[in-house]
Structures are given as structure tokens and as C-alpha cells.
Amino acid sequence: MKRRNFIKKLSLAAVPFTLGGIPIKLMAENSLTRMAGQSTNDRVLVILQLHGGNDGLNSIIPVEAYDEYYRWRANIAIPAKNSARKMILLDNTLPSDAQVGLHPDMLAMKDLYDRGRMTVVQGVSYKNNNGSHFRGRDISFMGGGFDDYFSSGWVGRYLQQEFAPKQYPDEFPNAEMEDPLAIEMGSDVSLIFHQQGNIPTSISINNPESFAQLVGELEGFTDQGIDPRGKPPVALDNSPYGKELNWILGLEDKSQDYAERLNEVYQNAPASSVTYPENYPFNAPRGSNAQQAYTAIAVNCPPVGWRWGRIGCKDKSVSGKTGWV
């Protein structure tokens, strides 16, 4: 499947901005942008999850229904005109009922859109929505319907299929795919990378250098080759103890398998040549109310989880070895 088809098929919207104290710093220069620079092509799929409540209607503002929008939220509405901070009209070539305005701080996204690099998917929901934030999030991670209860996520299943018949984690890394199938950063473990009946297809990591160093020196990781790796006695394999122990062991194994590789890629990468903004909002006048307000948000918000999927593909024509999707 071609990358564009993949993305189209999944209606994936790339959203290249973030709020919150830590992620701004992460974006400015972090290990993943650096490692991504090592890719021999642009086949990197990044999924950013903004955790928490974003005001969708003030990010993407309805144009044709602006009066109604304004009536419902006069106190917080983004001005349509006559203001230095009025909304940005996204695309006047769209049919009138599809016209939207962007929040005035979304200039960079307007630029992406103009270059054909961004799309907006609005009104995302599911049939028989039960009003639960948590169920809604689970469904978006699991990629199922309203009555599905999968124990896997849509990226996890995609990766399983993509690399079949090879099974993760037992048959990875291998000669065709020496990298982790996906990398996850942030403060939780997303269902999105889970596969049926085994550990998730992602490696969770913040700093490849310290990760490799710790995995290299901690006693808990130096036991490979001289012991049975804590395998439970066979009789206990299907007991709760056995199942949880095998789960932890699987993740311990993968830490060892990938720590050095990740660090190697990281060390070989030049520092990013892109200058990322350090402060949000990026184009608000210094000292403006808006800037202060967003600084307050940045301080009070929990870190936004963000994930970065490196998805290998088997198309060897691209780079002569494992490529990137």
C-alpha cells in the first residue's frame, strides 16, 4: 500500500503543533526529530495525541454558520474580521458550506495546508456515541465500532499484518527489520500499538542515549545468556503469575534488543537543521494577553502524550534495505 493511500484510508490528520510545557521543548530539539533525520526517505508516520480538551470550534471555525457559532459563544468567539487576531480563512476555493476559519495562531498550519500537506477531518465520532470520553478514546485507539471491545489497536494490527508471517516480538529484530516497529514517547502506554495476545508493537522511550546506557549497565538487563530470563516454571505458564511474568519479560527482552540500535541511529544523526519555535503562541506579540494566557496553560497542563510511529515497509526498491512508511 502506498503511503498516501494508507493515510487516506485511515483518514489520518497530521497535526504539527502542541501545547504544554514539555512538548514545546520536545519539539524544539528532541531525539526523535534527530533520528527521523536519519531516514533515507520521508517514510515516517508521526501520530500526535493531544490529551485533554481542545476547543475544536475555536480551532476550526465554521464560516457559513458563523452567526450561529457567534450566538452560542459570544464571550469566547474568534472574531471574523476587524481584529488583529481574527480567524484565518483556510481556503476560499472550497464550497461555501465547507469553508472554515483557523484560529489566528494557526498560521503555520495554514501554510502547510496551502502546500497540500494538511487536511482537516471534522466531526469525528462513532455510531451510537455513548457520551463517554473514555469509551470514545478507546474506540479511536482500538479502531473498532461502538460495540467492539478489542484488546489491540489499529496501528498494532496494521504492523502485525504488514510484517506477517513474521511474529512480533519473537521474530524481531531480524535482517529485514532491525528497527523497532514503532516508538512511543510521553507519559502513558497507548492501546493504539497493542496487538492481540502479546506485548505492544512499540518501544517506549524518551532519551535513546540514557536508555541504552541504563540497559547496558543495570543488573536486571545484564543477565541475558546466563540464565533462563526469569521464565516461570512450565506448570505456571497459564496462571495469572505466568501470564504477567511473560508480559514483563517480553518488554524486558525488547529493551535489550533495541536499546543499542536506537542509540546508534541517534548518535549517527546530525542535529536537526530546522529551527523550531520555543514559545507559544508563535506569532502573538510578546507580553500580549494571549501569550500570558497560553503560558499559564502551558504551566498548568499535564504533558501531552505524543507518539511517533516508525513503520517499516518491505519495499526494498526504495532504499535497498528496510524503508520507512
Binding site: 502506554v189 517506549s204 536508555f211 543495570l218 543488573e219 536486571g220 518488554l251 533495541y258
Partner: peptide, 11 residues
């Protein structure tokens, strides 16, 4: 338990 958290536990 993630790869990251397990490292922190051992550390």
C-alpha cells in the same frame, strides 16, 4: 510496565 518504566524500576 513499558520498556521505559521497567528501566526506571530497575534503576
Amino acid at each position: 510496565i513499558s520498556t521505559n518504566y521497567l528501566v526506571s524500576r530497575y534503576e
